[in-house]
């Protein structure tokens, strides 16, 4: 698997895929996409990078342990439900904030935050599984 061509292009491919995954995540509310798909794309990127360049370099690249990323995602998702409580609405009622920024309409919302949480959960968990399985090849 570790051909020179694969090893050379893998980092760029992975970077591109992660960029694409963020794009898919953010357009998810209006076009096909969303946290689940984005997370899977990013996890695949990490898996490819891991196969090409070794798991150790992936772990270095993402700094945090993948399960920590996953837990962080779950934390964000839970957090996204809380603002509605302040407004005396039931948990997870969506809240929206729209403003203009350099002539672009920007919509910030709690469902988006929630979707970002989903993204991190999927990236973290799937990458953790994939990396753990790849790692065992070396021992």
């Amino acid at each position: 698997m570790r051909t020179i061509i694969f090893r050379t292009i893998a980092p760029y491919l992975a970077a591109l895929m992660i960029l694409f995954s963020v794009f898919v995540l953010l357009r998810g509310h209006n076009e096909p996409g969303g946290g689940f798909i984005g997370g899977l794309i990013a996890a695949s990127a990490l898996a490819i990078y891991g196969i090409a360049c070794g798991v150790a370099s992936v772990r270095r690249a993402i700094v945090f342990h993948p399960m920590s990323i996953s837990a962080f995602g779950l934390f964000i998702a839970v957090l996204a439900g809380l603002p509605s409580l302040l407004l005396k609405q039931s948990y997870m009622t969506s809240q929206w904030l729209s403003f203009r920024f350099f002539d672009v309409n920007v919509d910030l919302s709690t469902p988006m935050l929630f979707d970002i949480g989903v993204y991190f959960v999927v990236v973290g968990s799937i990458a953790s599984i994939a990396l753990a399985l790849e790692e065992r090849e070396s021992d």
Binding site: H29, E31, P32, G34, S70, A71, V78, M92, P111, V122
Partner: peptide, 25 residues
């Protein structure tokens, strides 16, 4: 939201999804 499937997942049925991502974790 214009993507109805995504709206169901993250908004209408968000609480279900929360449970599901907990399972993934």
């Amino acid at each position: 939201g214009r993507n109805i499937v995504n709206v169901i997942i993250v908004d209408f049925r968000g609480f279900d999804t929360l449970g599901e991502i907990a399972v993934v974790v």
